[in-house]
Design a protein around this nucleic acid. Structure first.
Lengths: 211, 211
DNA sequence: GTCTATATCCTGATAGAC
DNA sequence: GTCTATCAGGATATAGAC
């Protein structure tokens, strides 16, 4: 019920090397992380660069010194989570020491942990509608990840480890619908540990909620 | 595995009484339904009234003849799904002939069917961020529905029908996270019937995906 | 690296003709 | 009930001083 995590390392998710001088002094990394949070809180399209600036305590011009456009800021904000998710799923799906069912279980568990660690970034990714080139590129990368998951589920079904009474595509969507829904309510400080959440998701997904 | 649906009736979800004259001739109902689809496709904040008008083949002014603001259009777009969901959950949670576990199973099954029938409207509801009065009111109504569900899950746990090895709030969020995730991929014409989808969700949620 | 302007375009909304 | 024309405010982005 608690497989090996295999989550990605934390490259500095919160407040890296701020200080030194008295006030703002943002480095690019911190600016991206904070902007990501603001985009998540109000929605990307619902957030003006003025709002981002105000929330960060600086002006728009200061932001445009670090990034060349609002779209680039979105691209950078999304990239972290996408990359972490992709490499985790990629890693799990190549472990030849496990059955497909166990690979899938590990992939679910690892995805939950990454989704929590990078929850702002992943949340933005999951909300993208394809309204710009950046958004369409993000959707395309997400589609590639989904493809790997679908292959895992198909293999687990072929193996006899996963129910075959419903279409594989439907099973996959529901499984990762549950996993991804974490972004809807998870907030920093949520009073249940990431490991417990990952265990709960894995248990619910594979065994159901009946006692 | 296939409980009594109890879904709401269809008051005319697609194209009511269009025609008569050659071109547009929208009635208010049709306009709202079509606008809802456009909002879902691009996101509410990412959709200008000019875009809505273009998609509908009329001008902004024609829209403002039917509704007084973009916000009111959102309110009307969201209302249908919210009302249907609320009354379905309300109805199931008052059936004294069923155990709490069975009430929950029926509520899940009914929610899936409503979520599919009103999927554009419900999708908008689930994406609301609280950036305006209309959005905050929608969030509040949604919170009331969630409260009823949480009570059902708590009762089912107390009854011994649902697993108690994880926090009830977490179980509830994951369960309806899976249910609600249908809005992420369901499209009119999806090649699996609503009933089969509802059965699959119920089976996955209560028994898990292991064979 | 951050500020105060400012340019340019887009957005929600209205007036008034047909 | 729909159109053309228009307005006032807000959006992204840039120029140039400190």
């Amino acid at each position: 019920m608690s497989p090996a995590p295999a989550a990605a390392p934390a490259p500095g998710a919160d407040s890296p090397k701020r200080g030194r001088r008295g006030r703002p002094g943002y480095d690019r990394e911190t600016l991206i992380n904070r902007a990501t949070e603001v985009f998540v809180a109000r929605g990307y399209d619902g957030t003006s660069m003025d709002t981002v600036a105000r929330e960060l305590g600086i002006t728009k011009s200061a932001i445009y010194h670090h990034v060349k456009s609002k779209e680039e800021l979105l691209r950078l904000a999304i990239a972290r989570g996408t990359d972490a998710l992709d490499s985790a799923v990629e890693a799990e799906s190549h472990r030849t020491d496990l059955t497909a069912l166990e690979q899938l279980r590990h992939a679910v568990h690892a995805s939950v942990l990454i989704l929590i660690e990078y929850h702002h970034s992943v949340t933005l990714l999951l909300r993208v509608r394809g309204n710009s080139e950046v958004e369409r590129a993000a959707l395309e990368q997400r589609r590639r990840i989904d493809e790997k998951i679908r292959a895992l589920v198909a293999a687990a079904i072929a193996e006899g480890g996963v129910r075959a009474d419903f279409p594989p595509g439907l099973i996959t969507r529901l499984l990762f619908g549950m996993v991804n829904s974490i972004t809807e309510w998870y907030r920093t400080g949520y009073p249940v540990s990431p490991e417990t959440i990952a265990d709960a998701v894995t248990a619910m997904a594979f065994s159901g909620l009946e006692a």
